[in-house]
Each structure stands twice: as C-alpha cells, then as structure tokens.
C-alpha cells in the first residue's frame, strides 16, 4: 500500500493510552490509516480495533470498587455504543473486521485484580461478539499482548519497537480481508510464554 489515499482506514476505539498510540503508529507505518471516532471521513471504516481500559493496578484488598465499577462499566457501554454506531442497530454493519485487545493479565497476575478483570472481559466480549456478529459478516478476534507490555506500561519508550510491530502485525492478520473465516480466536504475542499454562 503506497498511495495514502488507498490506505485502509482503521477505527481505533478507546485508544487514548500510550500503548494504543504506539500501536496506531505501527499500523500507520504498515500502510493503514488509523482514525478516531468522529474524525472526518467519507463513509464508515470497515476495520476497527478496540483497546481495553487501563485500570489502576492494585492488590485485591486495595481495589477501589467505585473506580473499578465506573471504569469497566464505561468501557463496556462505550464499546456497545460504538458498535451500534457502525450500523449494527439497523442490522447492517459497515464493519467487517474487529480486533479486540486484551491483556496478559487475563492469565492471572499478582496485584492486578482490576486489570485482569478488564483483560478477561475483553476476551468474553470478543468470543460472544464473534458468535453474534458472524451472520453479519463481521469477524471478531482477540490479541493478547505478552508480559513485555505490562512492565512500566505507561512508558512507551521502554517497549521494543520489534515487540510493538509484532503485536501490530497480529492485529493486521485479523484485519486482513483474507481472514474472513477466522472469528472468535485469540492470539497471544508473547514470545512463547503460554505453553505449560492454562489456556485463557
């Protein structure tokens, strides 16, 4: 994809974190045109990536339940609203590919109750939406970033570019038009850390 005007648009949902911005830059380098909701464009994008809410880290006894409820509820409601805006309300989705970013914490992570809940919720959404949207031709898959993205998560300078690009490449795989028969799947981009663990 050389010409800018031919770059496929990718709608980035809940993409305010440094992590999401790094992914957006990588997708742009790969020839995509990342967009935020509301940005001017002719027609609706057919591709979308949904990022998780960055819940605060806390041990179980320190989880602020009000903050947790507010953040998770907002993320879930907003995701539903954005999907309905894409045409689902009328039963004619403009989207054809949706990739949901989860988190390594879905496997379980000490001191990260809220983040693990969010990561797990993203998988539940992806698998359920995959079933519900299959008749509309919309595939929904999930990508789990490896633990490299957990440490010092908010300091993007600490993430190796190769890791970011590898993660973005997994997203591109699910966004590809040729991936029309793949839905409800989960890929962990983790350098081989998932063998000998419980599948999520």
């Amino acid at each position: 994809m050389n010409a800018k005007e031919s770059a496929p648009s990718v709608l980035l949902l809940n993409a305010d974190s440094p992590f999401a911005r790094s992914i957006a830059k990588s997708l742009e380098r790969a020839g995509y045109s990342p967009r935020r909701p509301g940005e001017a464009e002719a027609g609706q994008p057919s591709l979308a990536v949904l990022f998780p809410w960055s819940a605060p880290d806390a041990a179980l006894q320190d989880v602020d339940i009000d903050v947790f409820v507010g953040g998770l509820e907002s993320m879930l409601v907003d995701a539903g609203v954005k999907l309905r805006e894409s045409g689902l309300r009328s039963g004619a989705a403009s989207l054809s590919r949706l990739v949901v970013l989860s988190g390594w914490e879905a496997h379980g992570s000490m001191g990260r109750s809220a983040r693990s809940a969010v990561a797990g919720a993203m998988l539940g959404l992806a698998r359920s939406w995959a079933l519900e949207f299959a008749p509309l031709g919309l595939t929904v898959n999930a990508v789990i970033p490896g633990p490299d993205f957990m440490a010092e998560r908010d300091d993007a300078s600490l993430w190796p570019q190769a890791s970011i690009d590898g993660l973005a490449y997994a997203i591109q795989f699910f966004l590809d038009p040729r991936a029309q028969s793949i839905s409800g799947q989960v890929i962990a981009v983790c350098g081989g850390r998932t063998p000998a663990t419980i599948p999520v």
């Binding site: 041990a59 179980l60 990260r112 109750s113 797990g120 919720a121 539940g124």
Partner: peptide, 18 residues
C-alpha cells in the same frame, strides 16, 4: 460473558496473590 470472563481472570490473579 464479559463479566464472567473477568471473574475467571480475577480468580487466577487472586490465586497467585493469595
């Protein structure tokens, strides 16, 4: 499904933590 998946993930985190 999202809330139950969230509870499963928290189960694993709590197991490690406790």
């Amino acid at each position: 499904a999202a809330t139950k998946s969230a509870l499963l993930a928290m189960t694993r985190s709590w197991a490690l933590e406790l």
